[in-house]
Design a protein around this nucleic acid. Sequence first.
DNA 1: CTCGGATGATGAACCGGTTCATTGACTCCG
DNA 2: CGGAGTCAATGAACCGGTTCATCATCCGAG
Lengths: 344, 344
Amino acid sequence: MTSQPRRPQTVKVRDVARAAGVAVGTVSRVLNDRPTVTRELRERVERAMADLGYEVDVTAQSMRAGRSRLVACAIRDFDIPRFALFIKEAEAVLREAGYTLLLASTTNRPEVEISLLRAFRRRRVDGVMMTLSDEAHRDVRQALAEAPMPVLLIDRDSIEALDRVTADHRLGARLATSHLLGLGHRRIAMLVGDIKAFPSRSRLEGFREAYSAAGITPDSRLLRHNVLSSEDAYRATASLMNLADPPTALFVAAMDMLGGCLRALRTMSIDVGDGISVVAGSDSDLAELHTPPITAIEWDLAAMGRHAATMLLERMRGDEIERGRGLTVPTELIIRGSSRSLAR
Amino acid sequence: MTSQPRRPQTVKVRDVARAAGVAVGTVSRVLNDRPTVTRELRERVERAMADLGYEVDVTAQSMRAGRSRLVACAIRDFDIPRFALFIKEAEAVLREAGYTLLLASTTNRPEVEISLLRAFRRRRVDGVMMTLSDEAHRDVRQALAEAPMPVLLIDRDSIEALDRVTADHRLGARLATSHLLGLGHRRIAMLVGDIKAFPSRSRLEGFREAYSAAGITPDSRLLRHNVLSSEDAYRATASLMNLADPPTALFVAAMDMLGGCLRALRTMSIDVGDGISVVAGSDSDLAELHTPPITAIEWDLAAMGRHAATMLLERMRGDEIERGRGLTVPTELIIRGSSRSLAR
DNA sequence: CTCGGATGATGAACCGGTTCATTGACTCCG
DNA sequence: CGGAGTCAATGAACCGGTTCATCATCCGAG
């Protein structure tokens, strides 16, 4: 007998089998709802399990089965309020299907993404949903290609071999920009995140499309990218408004950056609506209840979460599906008082 | 030979051992950084692992060791923006220590809490952090008492046998209420969550303390509890303001309910500050950037997350610690323009 | 030269379920 | 009545690491 890691005595299939007077295999079949068990034995086993307070060890099940019933979700940073909606819905769908959600944040760094992928495979995680900081990153792409489990990308779209769930950020940005151009604005500043990755890149494309559709060329000095925190947004806004020729409209395209922008405008005593028009890249209580209320792009993050979980479940079931399905959730523009026509 | 669940061929300790020309036990010792391995063998083993692209199977490790290096976090509902801060920090501390975070939401229902606890023990989770919908619930208390792993309560304090991390909500509510009383308000309405559980109960206590300190009795008809969603807050606010004798101040004590309240006031064309004073139970971009800015209670949720993770780690290490430590994070009141003295 | 002790390596047993080849009982039919 | 076929139940082998009793080697002391 080798050593016993000290641990409270637990009831095992063996014990249940003995108590019910059956073989361990029978207990296992009862546990897994196999049809080939007579009602009488099933009942005896179930009674024994209840009497002894038996509980399966998922670890042991996972080991033999080679799957863990774990799904990992790794996103840039989960203190983005609206993102929580995505996770919440995804978790609900996964739990319903018997899976448990593992959560980790990548802090938007490729090396963390790679090391998380490794950690996930060590845990024999059955599926992964994640964002990427840089879709073109060599090592990340390699790690994704080598991942033994299905991976679904959240709001990233350039890797065709993988399933993707995205919002139509290009459309949203085009709508927002066209709206401002239609109001007479010509100097529109844009605050976006990392344009190496999908959402910001798409937003920039939408922005440029709207400009070309209007036959105008945007002033590239009014573009601020790598705006990833509220502080970044604050600084970017301040520097834009300090230009000799400041913008007449601000398109705060990155998610959840509106606060930093408004804080800067307030510090500089610039009135939203009068002094400058503002459009937010995502809706929020703040956008809705601000004075004046802020025009914003909106989409259904809860639906994204549900779709992501559902698609991943299908993939994990090994259904015969084409490689790399993309699903896009539409965006729309909610026009409010913060975007006004340019009085000349 | 029994069946092989079809699965990509993986490299195992056996293979590494063969390639390095050592015993499996030696490979295991290298993996776990045991000191009793000569440098030469260690290097040979490490080279073999690199050559073969070996990766340990955490499932197998967990099985033998009886621990999973998983920590579960179950909270009411993680679409509470500021709560994400807690999770983010806790996850960072846990990951640093080699643990992975499992996430689930209880939707504030005792039966879900119980079933999650059961699921966690089936997974041999090493520790749990959670909120409770009702600290007095018999079955929940029983499930907690029977849990084989340490459990830490988040913002709940009545179960002395367990570790707890709380914010001083009683203090916050007392500060907020005293502030309003000091401004001359006598009819202060309060919106709270479920007063069966800690944070709302404590807030109510703080509220009452402030009233008794002032020698006044609050009007109980101005108390609205079970305000758990933005819609609840909207309805509660509307019904309060429709009273024959409406309140002069609103204390929206529940977390993240400010939006619903402000929405109702705007619908009813009641001006914050002039028509009614408002104090929020938690700070947010919305509170800060509203016009007028909203007086709010603030505390450090990130620190709570760090402390929770640290305390749980100590407990999981089995350090000799007294049962049930409580840690309280202070709250403070940020006074802004939404709370004004009552013009008579 | 021998013996005791220290050090490092070995590999079989073990963790707790699941699987499947095998067995046993029973039915059906010629 | 015998043989084929059906269906449940059995239990040993297995999943992939970890552990520890045992063994081999080496060194220094006597």
